[in-house]
Simulated scan of single mutants.
Amino acid sequence: MSRSIIVIGGGIIGASIAWHLTIAGAKVRLVCEKPGGIATPNSFAWINASWGNPHDYFKLRMRSIREWSRLGKDVAGLPLSWQGGLCWDLPEDKLLAYAEEHTSWGYDIKRLDAAEISAREPALVNIPEMALSAPLEGVAEPRDAAMILIADAMRRGMETVENARVTALKRDTAGRVSGVATDRGEWTVDEIVLAAGAETATLAAGIGVDVPIHTPPGLLVHSKPVPPMLNGLVIAPELHLRQTAEGRIVAGSDFGGTDPGTDPDAAADELFSKVKSFLKGGENLELDFHTTGYRPTPKDGFPIVGRVAGRDGLYLAVTHSGITLAPALGLFAAREILDGEDEALLAPYRLQRFA
Rank of each mutant, 00 (worst) to 15 (best):
S4R: 15
S4L: 08
V7W: 09
V7Y: 05
V7A: 00
G11E: 10
I13T: 08
I13E: 06
I17H: 11
W19P: 10
H20S: 14
T22S: 13
T22C: 13
K27S: 11
E33Q: 14
K34V: 14
K34D: 11
P35I: 09
G36F: 00
G36C: 02
G37N: 11
A39Q: 02
P41M: 06
N42D: 00
N42V: 07
S43R: 06
A45P: 00
I47H: 08
A49M: 03
W51T: 02
N53P: 02
D56C: 10
D56I: 09
F58N: 05
R61K: 15
R61W: 08
M62T: 14
S64C: 11
R66I: 02
S69E: 15
L71D: 05
D74F: 02
V75P: 03
V75W: 08
A76W: 01
L78G: 07
P79A: 00
L80D: 12
W82P: 04
Q83I: 15
W88G: 06
E92V: 15
E92W: 07
D93W: 10
K94C: 04
R111S: 14
L112Y: 15
L112C: 13
A114I: 11
A115Q: 14
S118P: 01
S118W: 04
P128V: 14
M130Q: 14
L132C: 13
L132Q: 13
V139C: 04
V139H: 04
E141Y: 08
E141C: 08
R143P: 03
M147H: 02
I148N: 02
L149N: 08
I150K: 10
A151M: 09
R156S: 08
T167I: 09
A168R: 15
T173L: 00
V177F: 01
D183G: 08
R184D: 10
G185T: 09
T188F: 03
D190K: 12
E191N: 05
I192P: 01
V193N: 10
L194G: 06
A196E: 05
T200N: 01
T200K: 07
A201E: 11
A205W: 01
G206P: 06
I207W: 02
G208Y: 01
P212Y: 06
P212F: 03
P212N: 01
I213K: 03
H214D: 12
T215V: 02
T215Q: 11
K224T: 01
V226L: 01
P228A: 15
P228H: 13
M229S: 12
L230D: 08
L230S: 07
G232R: 15
G232L: 14
H240K: 06
L241W: 09
A245L: 05
V250P: 01
A251L: 12
D254Q: 11
D254H: 11
D259C: 04
P260C: 13
D265F: 11
E270I: 11
F272L: 04
V275P: 06
K276I: 00
F278A: 14
G282N: 09
G293W: 03
T297E: 15
P298L: 04
F302V: 12
P303F: 03
V305I: 15
V308S: 11
G322Y: 12
A328K: 07
G330W: 05
L331V: 11
F332R: 00
E336Q: 15
I337E: 08
I337C: 09
D339I: 03
D339C: 08
D339H: 10
E341I: 08
L345S: 13
L346S: 12
L346K: 09
R353D: 06
A355I: 07
A355R: 15
